[in-house]
Design a protein around this nucleic acid. Structure first.
Length: 552
RNA sequence: GACGUAAUAACUCAGUGGUAGAGUAUUGGUCUCAUAAUCCAAAUGUCGGGGGUUCAAAUCCCCCUUACGUCACCA
């Protein structure tokens, strides 16, 4: 167990816009908490992610904005990377798929599979915009649905009647780029085939590993209905060109195929940066690979990735667990980067820089673990004011103030404790065990509930023992000693959930990381703490209304 | 349509066979160390509906209703 290594991955965000609270709540925060928890327990872990920078959507965005795709990805990659850092997502590396290292690796995998005759070749007809000279993905064509006559149907599906359409079905198709009728052009692409036996093998493997039901059912369904071949090359001029194969040298690798290799190339990059051969991790039986993804990504991680990587090199490991989250909505509405709908992180940082931990907290509390969840500014206010200030911040402040008032700011020494003190400390310990359990079960919502509950226990203890009422100095010291024991635990755990708050706590207690011995805070002899400072900021109704306007 | 997920107090959710739980909101009280925060107490539910298994069901099985999600070129 001790030699276990961990690779934690967070799904690569697509660089057609800034990341939003859905990315944080669904992917980056759960991965971050898990990683921080492992680090707190001295596990050997690397936490990897990066930007997904190819694909039709970026190309389309660049055409619409009259910029080059490179401008688009550079802009958003920089922005996303910065925002993740501000939100203290504890990534070891945030890479990008447009980087040489990634391209090289993706092509290496691609060529090897090609040589093994792993792909099949097939002619298809596809819509082509003769003015822009590009092939058009299905959703860039609209026209009249042949079934219900709806005039805004996409070429693959009609939103109104739900009919699945095939190329050529749509009446009067037009390209949304040029508003002109596209032509149907013959093209030849490579496809990947999925063998049922292998999917069955994956299914049984995942079952043994106790995978999420969601994934198991999903795969089970694929086994039942079969999984169609899937194109892995594309006729667009943005992506990784397949230079070495003459027949396909003008085509690019389909983005899904290379994006899921991004975790590995990100690790290669990290190895260069730190001069440690992290790539070993990917081929070691002692490594647990844990993917954190949104529900839109299940098929790529649970089926496609294993097939691709195992056929490239069978020594690569398969996921040990895939944590899938649902989607976070805002006021009941779906978030959409391409429609610019959502609360974007860059904007949040700009307007509410003091509330990073409050947002982290809210997003963990509202994490869409087994069903879509809903973010509202009222919840944000409630979590900030009633829980972070009222319970946690308040508990911290009470003790700091009492130490100053009663003990001139000096930390009390160890004291003999009685039955009730023990009872309270036991209760706290139970909560710690529960937090462990919940984090290891990927239930971060419950974990943070138990975290805040520790402050509740502490507040209760203070009220019950009321040291401010008493003159007996020894009694006061004992109460504050026990309270500090509880506080120390809260502070250690805040490293996982609330990184900014963690640092503020340490500062006020006048200590730093060097005061951590075996993961526990140990105060120096005759230690004096600093004066209390405001940690969380109150949100008034007025302020909340202003926030609402800004993010409308 | 297929597949899946859910339905528990006013709200947000815990609770995988043994007398219905927490937080918020409400009402009453308490404290004054604390960012009017804390703490105590009260009240609130035939656990979506119907059937079945069982000594015992929110929990297991079947049917129905309702809501939501996915359904392959979308990254």
């Amino acid at each position: 167990m001790k030699n276990n290594k961990y690779i934690i991955t967070a799904a690569l965000p697509y660089t057609n816009g800034d990341i939003h609270i859905g990315h944080l709540s669904g992917v980056f925060l759960p991965a971050d908490i898990y990683n921080r928890y492992l680090k707190l327990n001295n596990k050997d872990t690397i936490f990897i992610s990066g930007s997904d920078e190819h694909g039709a959507s970026i190309l389309i965005k660049s055409i619409n904005e009259n910029k080059s795709p490179i401008d688009i990805i550079n802009k958003y990659h920089k922005k996303i990377k910065y925002n993740l850092r501000i939100f203290k997502i504890s990534l070891d590396n945030y890479f990008r798929t447009s980087n040489k290292i990634h391209k090289k690796f993706a092509l290496k995998v691609f060529y090897k599979l090609y040589k093994k005759n792993f792909f099949i070749n097939k002619d298809t007809y596809q819509y082509y915009d003769n003015i822009k000279k590009i092939f058009l993905a299905d959703r860039f064509i609209i026209g009249i649905c042949p079934i219900c006559n709806y005039n805004n149907a996409y070429s693959d599906i009609c939103d109104k009647c739900g009919t699945t359409l095939k190329i050529g079905d749509l009446i009067n198709p037009i390209s949304i780029l040029t508003k002109k009728e596209p032509i149907l052009k013959k093209t030849n692409n490579l496809f990947l085939i999925f063998k049922k036996e292998y999917i069955k093998y994956l299914y049984s493997k995942y079952k043994k590993l106790n995978f999420n039901k969601k994934i198991l059912k999903y795969i089970y369904n694929f086994i039942k209905i079969g999984i169609k071949k899937r194109s892995i090359t594309r006729d667009i001029n943005w992506g990784i060109y397949i230079k070495k194969i003459n027949k396909f040298k003008r085509k690019v690798i389909y983005v899904w195929f290379e994006a899921i290799l991004g975790y590995i190339s990100s690790t290669i990059d990290l190895s260069f940066k730190r001069n440690i051969n992290y790539i070993r991790y990917w081929k070691s039986k002692d490594t647990k690979l844990i993917n954190f993804i949104g529900k839109d990504n299940i098929v790529f991680h649970s089926i496609f990735y294993p097939i691709i990587i195992k056929n490239y090199n069978k020594n690569y490991i398969l996921p040990y667990y895939i944590n899938v989250n649902e989607f976070l909505k805002i006021n009941g509405e779906k978030i959409s980067t391409s429609k610019n709908k959502g609360i974007f992180i860059g904007k949040f940082i700009k307007y509410l820089p003091k509330y990073i931990d409050s947002l982290r907290y809210t997003l963990i509390k509202e994490m869409p673990i087994n069903k879509d969840s809903n973010f509202t500014w009222d919840k944000f206010k409630y979590h900030n004011n009633s829980e972070l200030i009222g319970i946690l911040g308040n508990y911290f402040n009470r003790i700091i103030n009492l130490i100053h008032i009663k003990l001139n700011g000096y930390i009390p020494k160890n004291k003999k404790i009685n039955k009730y003190d023990k009872y309270i400390l036991n209760k706290v310990n139970k909560n710690i065990k529960n937090i462990d359990k919940y984090i290891l079960n990927y239930n971060f919502r419950m974990a943070i509930n138990k975290f805040i509950d520790i402050s509740r226990i502490g507040n209760k203890y203070l009220s019950m023992t009321s040291p401010w009422k008493v003159k007996n100095n020894e009694y006061i010291k004992k109460i504050l000693y026990v309270s500090l024991e509880i506080l120390k635990i809260i502070i250690r755990l805040s490293y996982i959930f609330l990184p900014y708050t963690y640092k503020k706590f340490l500062k006020i207690l006048n200590i730093n990381e060097s005061n951590l011995v075996n993961n526990k805070i140990v105060f120096p002899l005759k230690h004096k703490i600093n004066k209390p400072k405001i940690i969380f900021f109150y949100i008034t109704d007025n302020f909340l209304n202003r926030i609402r306007l800004i993010f409308k």
